[in-house]
């Protein structure tokens, strides 16, 4: 192999990369927070909602989980304008991530809630807590705590999946890599560096989720 590696371009282009990192993080945080919120809502509907609502949510969840994120993104960005919904690339990317994570989070959280022993609910009721209070303290919080690792993994998966938003010209980390690649022709180097950054981001996001977990669920219940 006569190819010689060259990383000189880093000196010139690092601001592009930094900006890309920030956008990828922004997408992950917005997607993570709103996606989990949507997931909780959908899990709630799926478990306790009226029949028609349950069907709507089930359809949404199955559709999202059985189609590629890239196609969802294209549909939102290129397809929705036909209905008069015109979105900027960042808006479309954000919405796609929320919608995507929401479906996965719904299933994870629903499974967590269903694993709550029935006696727990009755115990809560017998302590004269309202249904909502019971749900929050006895069902939801322990369930979230139980499935937090699975949810964290899903957030990381969504973050890694966000690499494709570069395809609608959202200027994330992958967009930065493509940009540098097209200017320097140092393809392999550009993609190696960004891949390494993604790996670090994945580790950081995992740590952050664990940190949030410790904050929200201060005392680990021994099981």
């Amino acid at each position: 192999m006569t190819y010689s590696f060259n990383f000189m371009w880093l000196a010139t282009y690092y601001p592009v990369i930094v900006k890309g990192i920030l956008i990828t993080l922004e997408l992950t945080i917005v997607g993570g927070v709103l996606g989990i919120a949507l997931g909780i809502l959908c899990a709630f509907v799926k478990l306790y909602g009226t029949a028609p609502l349950r069907v709507v949510v089930a359809t949404y969840v199955e559709l999202i989980r059985n189609t590629p994120f890239l196609v969802q993104l294209f549909f939102i960005f290129f397809g929705l304008p036909a209905l008069g919904i015109r979105l900027g690339e960042l808006e479309a990317a954000n919405i796609a991530m929320v919608v995507n994570l929401g479906a996965y989070a719904c299933e994870i959280i629903r499974a967590g809630i269903q694993a709550t022993p029935r006696g727990q609910f009755e115990a809560g009721a017998s302590l004269a807590m309202s249904r909502l209070e019971t749900f929050r303290h006895v069902v939801l919080v322990p369930a979230l705590q139980r499935i937090w690792p699975a949810l964290s993994s899903q957030v990381v998966i969504v973050m890694l999946g966000s690499a494709v938003v570069s395809q609608i010209a959202a200027q994330d980390l992958t967009y930065a890599a493509n940009y540098i690649e097209s200017r320097t022709f140092r393809s392999f180097e550009a993609y190696s560096v960004t891949t390494a950054i993604y790996l670090i981001l994945a580790i950081l996001v995992r740590q952050a989720m664990a940190g949030v977990g410790r904050l929200v669920f201060p005392r680990r219940v021994s099981r």
């Binding site: 690499a163 890599a177 993609y191 790996l199």
Partner: peptide, 11 residues
């Protein structure tokens, strides 16, 4: 598992 599939494709 810790990097995007898209990056793996590019690489």
């Amino acid at each position: 598992q810790g990097t995007p599939l898209l990056m793996q494709l590019f690489l």
